[in-house]
Write a protein that binds this DNA or RNA. Structure first.
Lengths: 202, 202
DNA sequence: TGACGATGTATCGGCCCGATACATCGTCGC
DNA sequence: GCGACGATGTATCGGGCCGATACATCGTCA
């Protein structure tokens, strides 16, 4: 999963580890607090060995404020890496539908096609619906066996599930009718087809 | 964290691994799907070695339907284990406030005192508020740099944060005024002090 | 009698985290 | 000028937890 996230970010721009972590924190802020270095660096090494990314120690810097010879390693995605990214993004296993996996996939939704988006959205919905049904079962069948706090927790969880299902329904509806997620109330008119394959970092 | 959960469940009744897993699934259903055996059995062994629980292979069974000599191992909490449980439940590190940790603590709230409950509730609130502020920052400062899907994800996350903070506020208010979580609208009258130290499994 | 699913215990590889170590850069105060 | 300090940067290690897998028994139904 982290592999997908790294590949996705490097698709936008070459970066070194520290920068990657910060970028991950803002883009995936909802999903994970911040990726740990204990995971990041070994993963980068693994991706490099696999040939998905290229490693390049650098003396010079890109941005003006820094002009020294700090030993930084800039990573750049390779052609094989882009292929790998597309595969990972499109294929959906069970882990695609849990919180972290879904979040990462969703983050890069603008990089894939509508069919894939719908597939993942519906898979996620099914997952949450299952959780919701489980909670309803527990509340109706064993509710009186649980103490007040546990009960309250279940209820709060159930509420969150229902809310997320509604959110997903809306996204699915939008997707089917060819709309990009409506920001708030804008975007009344739908773009013709794919909502601009990808163009962040303007 | 899993240690706390196991100790908590064994406090209610002796159990063997398989049963423990099912019980965990229903009580902590909101938090985690189901605990993996690859974690459960090693943890049980660890707890046994530490002296928190006692291990007893059994031939006879408790419940009527089963009357054979299946090699099951029934675990029972020890006096030291109960002490350990109380310590773990009351002490609050940073991991107490993330989703899993908070969920487990909350599940056993009826087993601890109001001061501890308030401390944990407020710590959790602070944690969520931090996440909320982070999301607001991103949305206001870098919102236009992100594509529509990422934006939508952040917004959904922000909404969930705000909702959870409100939920926590309510719980904290109730706790301060000496009420157990109000089931829905019942419980208009507050019990005198601690809401019955613990009595599930009636 | 044999297939099948639920029950039950156990291990292994792998992902990811937190703690930790170490080094350099820019900035600010003294 | 110079030292302290926080941000920047790379890296390793132990440990928790997961998914896959293996193996065995029980009850049930064909």
């Amino acid at each position: 999963m982290l592999e997908l996230a790294i590949l996705g970010l490097l698709q936008e721009a070459p970066m070194h580890g520290y920068e990657l972590r910060k970028e991950l924190a803002t883009k995936l802020g909802t999903i994970r607090a911040a990726i740990s270095y204990g995971t990041l660096y070994p993963t980068l090494k693994r991706l490099h060995c696999a040939g998905w990314i290229s490693e390049q120690a650098t003396e010079t810097d890109i941005v003006p404020p820094m002009t020294s010879k700090r030993g930084r390693i800039v990573y750049k995605i390779t052609a094989e890496g882009k292929e790998r990214f597309a595969d990972l993004l499109a294929q959906a296993g069970p882990e695609t539908y849990d919180d972290a996996g879904f979040g990462v996939h969703f983050t890069f939704f603008s990089r894939t096609d509508r069919a894939t988006r719908l597939r993942i959205l519906e898979g996620r919905r099914r997952r949450i619906e299952e959780r919701r049904e489980g909670l309803r079962d527990v509340l109706s069948r064993a509710g009186d066996r649980l103490d007040a706090y546990t009960l309250e927790l279940q209820r709060h969880g159930l509420d969150a599930c229902e809310r997320e299902v509604r959110w997903l329904e809306e996204l699915i509806t939008n997707e089917r009718s060819g709309r990009t997620p409506s920001s708030a109330a804008d975007q009344a008119v739908a773009p013709p087809e794919e909502p601009a394959p990808h163009q962040d970092r303007p």
